[in-house]
Amino acid sequence: MTSGLVFALAGVALFAMGAAGVLLLAELMRRVLAFNIMGSGAFLVLVGLAQRNDVPDPVPQAMVLTGIVVAVAATALALALARRYQALGGRDELAGDD
């Protein structure tokens, strides 16, 4: 097993944990964090799989670099929306959640 494959498997575990978090956690802030963990898992799978033969591939690395920056921007926008939602309704959970 190469180190790239270990990274990819860790990415799978992170993605599954993040997905469970998005579904289970009620607070918006935690949900955004869980979504970020999901994203990190996807990035790890992409980069890890691409170098599972110990030959790094620059194309997925560049794609993931782009993805990380977009994820940061999306997280900030999500946090801004969550804060606005909380300011308007006084709650940090979406209406209709059980």
Binding site: L5, A8, L9, V12, A13, F15, A16, A19, V45, L49, R52, N53, V55, P56, D57, P58, V59
Partner: peptide, 20 residues
């Protein structure tokens, strides 16, 4: 899901196309 995807990753053959 994690177990299935992990098993699939372990079964993967050599890449069909590499851009490197």
């Amino acid at each position: 899901f994690a177990a299935l995807l992990g098993a699939a990753l372990l079964e993967l053959g050599p890449p069909a196309a590499t851009l490197a």
